[in-house]
């Protein structure tokens, strides 16, 4: 279990990004729930912590696929594969994470920018 931050550091509607490898993001929804998923979109290299949180889904800041925070599934492409979900544990005043040991669905070119669009 890894400590993330104090409860007070993550208000409702906000995200906390952890520089793990690969990075993980913890969301605190407007309804008061906590969810953790891999931070990198499964389509291209975009940070979901920068996305649009709505209910218990986050919309990718780039091509707008929406990931369900409970299952990691995307609603429509361009993202096709689910993001990995992790377990959030609150102990006292601290948020902790139990990282999933599943294989992450990282985009082909994560860290090297997008592959598409005919980059020369």
């Amino acid at each position: 279990m890894i400590p993330v931050c104090r409860l007070a550091d993550l208000p409702r509607g906000e995200a906390f990004r952890l520089d793990t490898k690969p990075p993980v993001v913890v969301f605190h929804t407007e309804d008061g729930e906590f969810y953790a998923i891999d931070d990198t979109c499964t389509h291209q290299d975009a940070s979901l912590a920068e996305g649009w949180l709505e209910g218990c889904a986050v919309e990718c800041p780039l091509h707008a696929s929406k990931f369900d925070l409970r299952t990691g599934q995307a609603d429509v492409p361009p993202a096709r594969l689910p993001v990995r979900t992790h377990q959030v544990v609150i102990e006292g005043e601290t948020i902790h994470l139990v990282l999933s040991d599943a294989v992450p669905n990282l985009p082909f070119a994560a860290g090297r920018g997008p592959v598409a669009g005919g980059a020369t």
Binding site: Q73, V76, P77, P78, V115, A116, G117, G118
Partner: peptide, 24 residues
């Protein structure tokens, strides 16, 4: 199917038709 890739990844040949499906 999804149209935005038609001028981008699909046209470039880096993804195929199956990747365009909008349905789960």
């Amino acid at each position: 199917y999804d149209r935005p890739p038609l001028s981008k990844e699909f046209l470039a040949g880096s993804i195929d038709e199956e990747a365009l499906s909008l349905e789960a």
